[in-house]
């Protein structure tokens, strides 16, 4: 792939690749914009840029991630995702075959999630000015009837649920990057959660207060964020956390806390205590919620801390890591 003189031909080629993969009536209008009629009720909109290394990881690639990430951001607003846009910044020299794999993964992810990629854009930059490919996706969705979820709605007494094992994505990526032989079976959990959210909304209705996907910074960062937004504390129980054995092993080796590792196909939910058990049962019926668990509860706490009762009965504060996990032992 190159840009400049041959740029025109290249863009045409890429265009063709996308049209074939994403094929849908709105995209096929072939205009600079997609035109559709607005549905009834509240809408949500989100955008996210994907800049990852490596581009391909066990269980997915940057393309599937770009669809899942944006679909999930819509779903975490209690919405049914409808349409996505896709913007590509390609680095000169990216093998066409790699691009094709990425685009196919995007198309498959979109099909599975039931959304359409209805508009897009491509730019090619000089070698060295990109990291293979950067993707931006923007999405719009329609809020499910009777649902109002938001980060500031957690109340003391509410229960905290997670939809499955934590840390899978981050550890899979890291294991690949670090060449950890024993963790080669690990796959990213990258998935679209809108189906699971629909199930949950149906079960819990307005008793569902908060939904959020614990991506960067993992469960720890997300719960700390929610604690601040809602001005509450959170009490977790380590023994209730679903963690795969391989993930636990890799975390021990790498010195990571699974709570701070990124997920791409998991959600945290906070709901009224009374619906926690039925909600858990409903989640466990869904293929993406088989390992769901109630991991803690919302508590009153002026310090707005996330605390955890450890497996050996101790108590510690679950920290909010800004950057990468740095040592703190002095």
């Amino acid at each position: 792939m190159n840009h400049g003189a041959g740029g025109r031909a290249m863009a045409d080629l890429v265009d063709l690749l996308f049209r074939q993969a994403f094929d849908n009536p709105l995209l096929n209008q072939a205009n600079d914009q997609a035109r559709f009629s607005a549905p009834q009720g509240d809408m949500v909109m989100t955008t996210d840029s994907f800049v990852i290394s490596p581009l391909f990881f066990p269980g997915g690639n940057i393309g599937s991630l770009a669809v899942h990430g944006t679909v999930n951001d819509l779903a975490m607003g209690g919405a049914e995702p409808l349409y996505l846009s896709a913007g590509f910044i390609l680095e000169e020299g990216l093998p066409l075959a790699d691009l094709a794999r990425i685009v196919e993964a995007m198309a498959a992810a979109a099909r599975e999630a039931g959304v359409q990629i209805v508009t897009g854009d491509t730019k090619v930059v000089e070698r060295g000015k990109g990291d293979g490919v950067f993707i931006n996706t923007t999405g719009v969705g329609r809020v499910l009837p009777g649902i109002r979820v938001s980060g500031e709605l957690a109340r003391p007494g509410d229960r905290v649920l997670v939809s499955g094992t934590i840390g899978d994505h981050g550890v899979a990526v890291m294991s690949q990057r670090q060449g950890l032989a024993f963790a080669t079976e690990l796959l990213s959990d990258s998935a679209a959660l809108n189906g699971l959210v629909a199930t949950m909304a149906e079960c819990a209705g307005p008793s569902l207060r908060v939904l959020r996907d614990p991506t960067r910074g993992g469960v720890a960062a997300t719960l700390n964020e929610l604690a601040h937004q809602s001005a509450v504390g959170v009490q977790l129980h380590e023994s209730a956390l679903p963690v795969r054995t391989e993930v636990r092993g890799a975390c021990e080796l790498l010195g990571l806390d699974p709570l701070t590792v990124a997920n791409e196909g998991k959600l945290l939910a906070i709901c009224e205590a009374s619906v926690a058990e039925p909600l858990l049962a409903a989640m466990q019926q869904h293929p993406l919620g088989v390992n769901a668990a109630i991991i803690g509860e919302v508590i009153e706490d002026p310090l707005q801390l996330v605390r955890m009762t450890t497996a050996i009965g101790g108590e510690r504060v679950v920290d909010w890591l800004h950057g990468e996990q740095l040592p703190r032992i002095c």
């Binding site: 990057r177 670090q178 060449g179 950890l180 032989a181 024993f182 092993g249 021990e252 080796l253 790498l254 040592p327 002095c330």
Partner: peptide, 21 residues
Amino acid sequence: LAAALGQWLRTGETGDTTSAG
């Protein structure tokens, strides 16, 4: 974790520190 750590050191990149401790 000794064997796994040996392997990680060979294939991956650990952080480092100038700590005297």
